[in-house]
Design a binder for these strands. Structure first.
Length: 423
RNA sequence: GUGGGUGUAGCUCAAGUGGUCAGAGUGCCGGGUUGUGGCCCCGGAGGUUAAGGGUUCAAGUCCCUUCACUCACCCCA
């Protein structure tokens, strides 16, 4: 019989690692709440059309990375490769923008892209995704970026760099595209095959190329920031002004492009040099046209996504210490002892004490060992002798001290000891 | 999708140019302590050496195929 394993690129998060995840999620939720964001939960699967229209037909994500299938021979469905399109779909579907013209929403959950797994890249990965809908004010851009940096800082992720750019509006973009196309035509002989392909489909992508000769050829290529219209230019300048006002350090990278077609104007990326090739820990941008692309009214928006697995790799251990998960362990010896321990455990649990009783048929030695393994600070030893005598043994596992506590005062005494332990 | 690296006990890893090489540490179970964890001592269980095929008197070791993991490209969080 062949052992069944998890599918490639899909990973288990084992009990050892879940405290780290919980720390990250808890921190994110509380800071997002500080900025007035509310949680929205969206399905992991959508009609494929949402993504082809939203993200863009010719992006790599849609072209070759989506998990798509035909549901019962009828409808094409896809696992979500990102969250923004779904959030906007939900907003439009429920007319949330009509109730509140400015929405701040976040979601945390798995995304799916069928790429070849490598360090920092899985097929099922997780994102913390935050979006502000309903305003195109540069003030919002700055605040969203500030939120992102605040969040990273709170998670103890410090060695990161913030890069920003403006991709302009549709008008700036088409002017720039034309300029790039003309420029690339002149260099067509010195470009790598990939870049020649890119220059046709998505000219901005050539700036991502790592081939040395291409980079040299592109040194003097036009940059988008030179083609911004007046409105986009002043928008971008104000974003930078506000970021400076917030004392956030950033670098303008006019060569930065993002992988989704819906981005307009402000785009940003946070990278680290601690993670190998997959160095982007978060990215985002403005998408003023997305709502209309999805058949809605004009709802400008801006948001970001944080890659949870990448962040987790950067979170320091001291934030995630794996403390004991029990307050007290009850070592019950024999049938009568277990009959005592069962209801008594319930009593303590109702008082929010974390308690576990060992399974039957085990020796005291085994039970103490079990308590030791789990780092439990106290063990209540319940044996036939103690029950008959009317007082039980409470053992302090750190120093080995034991004391007798009469069964009538047991609950009170244990609560008192555990409470002083917590202080 | 393309390329490189790696697959030996649950985990981390050993086994000169093919020839007692299937081992250690750790973890687990038991005993030393008939009811006291950690430290120490003793014992035990756990492997079709990823799978399949080939070369050979002989393969964990060499060759081929497949699979998995991993890193990088592509792309992105």
């Amino acid at each position: 019989m062949v052992k069944i394993t998890a599918i490639r690129g899909f990973k288990d998060v084992l009990p050892e690692e879940t405290p780290k995840w919980q720390f990250m999620e808890y921190t994110a939720r509380s800071i997002l709440a500080n900025y007035g964001f509310r949680e929205i939960r969206i399905p992991v699967m959508e009609k494929t059309e949402l993504f082809t229209r939203g993200i863009g037909e010719t992006t790599d994500i849609v072209e070759k990375e989506m998990y798509t299938f035909i549901d019962r021979g009828e409808e094409s469905l896809s696992l979500r490769p990102e969250a923004t399109a779904s959030i906007l779909r939900a907003v439009l579907e429920h007319n949330l923008h009509a109730v509140n013209p400015v929405l701040k929403l976040y979601t945390i959950g798995p995304m799916f892209r069928r790429e070849r797994p490598q360090k920092g890249r899985l097929r099922q990965f997780h994102q913390i995704d935050a979006e502000v809908l309903g305003s195109e004010e540069p003030y919002v851009d700055a605040e969203v970026i500030a939120l992102l940096m605040h969040l990273l800082h709170a998670l103890g992720v410090n060695h990161v760099a913030l890069e920003i750019n403006s991709l302009g509006c549709a008008a700036c973009r088409s002017k720039f595209r034309e300029a790039i196309r003309i420029f690339l035509d002149a260099y067509v002989h010195s470009l790598c095959p990939d870049c020649i392909r890119r220059s046709k489909n998505n000219p901005l992508r050539v700036f991502d190329c790592k081939v040395e000769t291409c980079r040299e050829s592109l040194m003097n290529a036009p940059v988008i920031t030179d083609y911004l219209c007046g409105d986009c230019q002043s928008h971008f300048l104000r974003v930078q002004e506000y970021l400076s006002l917030l004392s956030l350090s950033f670098v303008v990278n006019s060569r930065m492009v993002r992988g989704l077609d819906y981005y307009t104007r402000t785009a940003f990326e946070v990278t680290t040099d601690l993670l190998g090739a997959q160095n982007a820990v978060a990215g985002g941008g403005r998408y003023d046209g997305l709502s209309e692309d999805l058949g809605g009214p004009r709802i400008p928006g801006i948001g970001f996504a944080i890659g949870c697995e990448r962040i987790l790799a950067l979170i320091k251990e001291e934030h995630t210490h794996n403390g004991p998960y029990l307050d007290i362990f009850i070592a019950a010896l024999g049938e009568e002892a277990q009959k005592f321990a069962l209801p008594f455990s319930q009593l303590l649990r109702r008082k929010h004490i974390k308690v576990e009783t060992g399974p039957g048929g085990k020796s005291l030695k085994w039970l103490l060992k079990q308590a030791d393994r789990t780092g439990t600070p106290y063990v209540l030893i319940v044996g036939e002798n103690e029950l008959n005598a009317g007082s039980l043994i409470l053992r302090n596992m750190k120093n080995g001290e034991q004391r007798l506590i009469s069964t009538s005062q047991l609950e009170e005494a244990i609560m008192k000891i555990l409470r002083s332990e917590q202080n």
